[in-house]
């Protein structure tokens, strides 16, 4: 540490001091955030619910599609593995808000900011951990849904291979979509610092706003345009195996949603850096 001061002849280097080279690194902060996220019960509970609901819904949809196999529009079966997407979106959005807003709510954030006073690394690491978990949850549930639903669909001759065009990409992008949902929700939770307010806000943005804009779409063309570029609506295009005319392509949709996620994360970061905690 610093040079000894004039007033103390006592050694200022304690004996059990950790060896040189210890200190904050991004990898260590990442590990800390991983420990934090995985040691609160809400994480495990919400992840399990998400997996069960997403796979379960896909199975139910596959089964009901099989009942009306003749009436089903062509390509409908492709959408089956991502049937539970909206519920996954809701649950992951809640999880992301809870994980970050509960830190503010419980005062944990002060411990975090004392340990990582630069703050940026802590927030980026938290975003990375939450996004990674959400990606895995989305990917695993989409893949699980695929394998659970194929026997049901095969029985009706509606089965399809994972290697068919766009199918595996859709499975991967279910993960990407949920990761972006998590980033947007986490940024919202960080800005609002409140669990209830955060969840209400993300539900509003993901589920209510699209419906409102759809209702008002008849008023002007630009309303429909705005609706297409909402984060949830744009992002869902990533999961579509076949897209309709006029809609964003999976890539465009993904980039639009990613822009929302990055933009909100940057705002949350700038605000948090300046904030008294």
């Amino acid at each position: 540490m610093t040079a000894p001061t004039a007033t103390s002849s006592i050694p200022t280097t304690p004996t059990t001091r950790a060896e040189a080279g210890s200190g904050i690194t991004f990898g260590r902060v990442l590990r800390s955030e991983w420990i934090k996220v995985t040691t609160v019960p809400s994480t495990v509970i919400l992840i399990v619910i998400t997996l069960v609901v997403m796979i379960g819904l896909a199975a139910v949809v596959a089964w009901s599609l099989g009942l009306a196999a003749d009436a089903a529009p062509p390509g409908a079966a492709f959408a089956v593995p991502s049937s539970g997407l909206a519920f996954g979106q809701l649950l992951i959005a809640s999880l992301a808000v809870v994980l970050v807003a509960s830190e503010w709510g419980t005062g944990m954030i002060r411990s975090t900011m004392v340990a990582v006073p630069g703050r940026t690394q802590a927030l980026v690491a938290k975003a990375a951990v939450i996004a990674a978990i959400s990606f895995v949850v989305g990917f695993v549930s989409a893949l699980g849904s695929y394998f659970v639903t194929q026997p049901i669909l095969d029985a009706q001759g509606l089965g399809f291979a994972l290697g068919e065009e766009g199918v595996f990409l859709s499975v991967v992008n279910t993960g990407t979509f949920l990761a972006l949902v998590a980033l947007i929700s986490m940024a919202t939770g960080t800005l609002l610092r409140n669990t209830a307010g955060g969840i209400v806000t993300v539900v509003g943005v993901f589920f209510v706003l699209p419906v409102v804009l759809q209702t008002l779409a008849g008023l002007a063309d630009w309303v429909a345009d705005v609706g297409r570029f909402l984060p949830g609506e744009a992002g869902q295009q990533m999961v579509a195996v076949s897209t309709t005319d006029g809609a964003l392509s999976p890539l465009e949709g993904g980039l639009t949603m990613a822009a929302w996620a990055v933009g909100l994360q940057v705002i949350a970061l700038v605000v948090t850096k300046k904030r008294d905690v």
């Binding site: 260590r28 902060v29 934090k36 609160v40 509960s102 830190e103 944990m108 004392v114 340990a115």
Partner: peptide, 27 residues
């Protein structure tokens, strides 16, 4: 520093809280 004894996530155990704090510095 002990600034505020309540600066802890209430649903995490003391051990895990300390482990998370320690991890940031490779302690």
């Amino acid at each position: 520093a002990l600034l505020d004894a309540k600066a802890v996530h209430t649903r995490r155990s003391a051990y895990n809280h300390l482990r998370a704090m320690a991890a940031t510095h490779g302690i």
